[in-house]
Design a protein around this nucleic acid. Structure first.
Lengths: 302, 302
DNA sequence: GACATTCATAGGCAAAGCTCATGAATTGAT
DNA sequence: ATCAATTCATGAGCTTTGCCTATGAATGTC
């Protein structure tokens, strides 16, 4: 058998109190148990630690020597427990994840704000990447999860749809536009529109979905960055054709989104995780915050 | 129950080998025992440490975090064991003791040399004091023992006589003097003598012992320091009246000691220890070295 | 698809660990 | 000086822990 922390606890207790009885009380064990623990420790270390009579318990020089190591180990043990408890309660730690640029700019700011309020000491490492890089970066780095639009299966990963954003027309809150429940794709032809360039994921999905229906989007403007599209829309240059989830209400308070139908095209906001790997408590907390925020958002319409 | 070092050993093993089976082999336990230890640790820390499937054992972030503390504690534990083993074997540590000036100059140098050869890493703290200070210093300081001439009992202390030095006449190795087995006190009257001053312990003892016999020492010279007496003797100024144990043969190779008889007066060389306190292994080793050296010395005549 | 490897779990047994009771030594009070 | 009180050590007995063997489930390999 080897030295145990139990023995060391008894040892430091006796060393400090100079009494086996008192130390035992502190530890919540009987005096005889404490006595045995000291004896064991002495025999395992091969050193007498206390000169004891019924009347006094005097530490030997060896005990003076051992005391420091013992204290350090015990405080390390306590520190470890505390640290793990903090990690478990997401009061310490770090969340590293990948987010597509779209999610990062529109969806996640709210999540981040809420998460930070609840878990102020968690380090957040959000890697915002172009949509195409989402999965490769997730695979290549130590990110615990990824948030973005992913369709289909990916090896070694689980994909879960958090919410679906309907492709929408985003425009200024004019009486006319605000009155609409929805717009059809056909109706867009009559109006100036701002869409993403053909190379982008969003646009590719639109074209793929409309093609079989014999329809086609012919935008007035084509841009690369979502923000550009929204800024142009805010200027009244036309309707932006985007998932509603990509409209940050705080940033563009004058804009509103109205779903496009016939056909309704939806785009998932997905959560990507490594299969068979548990998220750290901090990451779990983050994910559930994200769920909560997205649920609200969906509730008030998307 | 609390975290145990056993669990931590299993943990670091698994962490390093990324395998419960291999770690178990290292620890000399079965795979199932190791598996249980990990489970216990996880439940006690409230944190998942490994994502395990039958095919892989992946440390979580919490495990990365915990690993360092765990390693430190284990190496502390090892260090403690080793340190205590060194102390036990008197391969490390420190001996603090008090020695009367006489013992320190004549008896102990040989002991120190031998002890140091056998225990090169032990720190030695020898406090050499005047004979009268021996006991007070022993009581007041943290010295583990004292060596010097002590008669009678002392509270809280054990007094053990290591050897007895006979009061002797010390003189140059002349054919005449060397031929003598012993001298009587009466014979001293015919010769020049060098004795310690009346205030010294040695002298007081001589006077007390001779008084009842109606005898009296009337020295030619009276000095305070033993070394002075010996140096004078070496110069041929007379016979030094001292315990034979106080003649350091190495320092005064020309001098020899011959016991004084009628009456024979002896003076103990005592070992003083605190009652009920064990000596540190280093001190024990020192004391037994002292015994061995003194035994030799007694053997070759004093 | 059979095989081998690895982790988890259950049952059973030995050992450790604790408590309770008691004894021995020592101190302090009556 | 005797007695009560305190404190540490020890032994008996019971509970809990800890380990091993055996087996099952999952997964990657040939």
């Amino acid at each position: 058998m080897n030295v145990t922390l139990r023995q060391l606890r008894a040892f430091t207790g006796v060393y400090r109190t100079r009494s086996i009885t008192r130390a035992a009380r502190e530890l919540g064990i009987t005096q005889s148990a404490a006595s045995l623990l000291i004896q064991q420790l002495e025999s395992q270390l091969g050193v007498k630690l206390f000169d004891r009579s019924t009347r006094s318990v005097q530490p030997t020089l060896a005990a003076d020597d051992a005391f420091q190591s013992a204290e350090r180990m015990l405080s390390d043990a306590l520190g470890l427990s505390r640290r793990m408890r903090d990690l478990a309660q997401a009061r310490a730690g770090r969340v590293a994840f990948v987010a597509s640029a779209g999610a990062a700019s529109a969806l996640l700011p709210a999540v981040l704000a809420r998460f930070r309020a609840a878990h102020p000491d968690i380090e957040i490492d959000m890697r915002d990447v172009a949509a195409d890089d989402l999965v490769p970066r997730m695979i290549a780095t130590d990110a615990e999860f990824a948030i973005g639009s992913v369709e289909g299966e990916i090896a070694e990963m689980t994909v879960e749809t958090l919410t679906r954003g309907r492709l929408s027309a985003i425009g200024r809150r004019t009486a006319d536009f605000a009155a609409r429940r929805s717009l059809t794709w056909d109706e867009l032809a009559e109006r100036p529109t701002i869409a993403m360039r053909r190379e982008t994921r969003i646009r590719m999905q639109i074209d793929q979905a409309l093609g079989p229906q014999g329809k086609r989007l012919t935008p007035t403007y084509e841009v690369t960055l979502i923000n550009t599209a929204l800024a142009m829309t805010a200027q009244g240059l036309g309707l932006a054709i985007l998932p509603a989830t990509m409209l940050p209400a705080e940033q563009f308070p004058t804009l509103i989104a109205r779903p496009l139908v016939r056909p309704a095209i939806t785009r998932p906001v997905s959560l990507l995780q490594r299969q068979g790997r548990t998220l750290s408590p901090a990451a779990q907390a983050f994910v559930s915050t994200a769920r909560a925020v997205l649920a609200q958002r969906t509730g008030r319409g998307s």
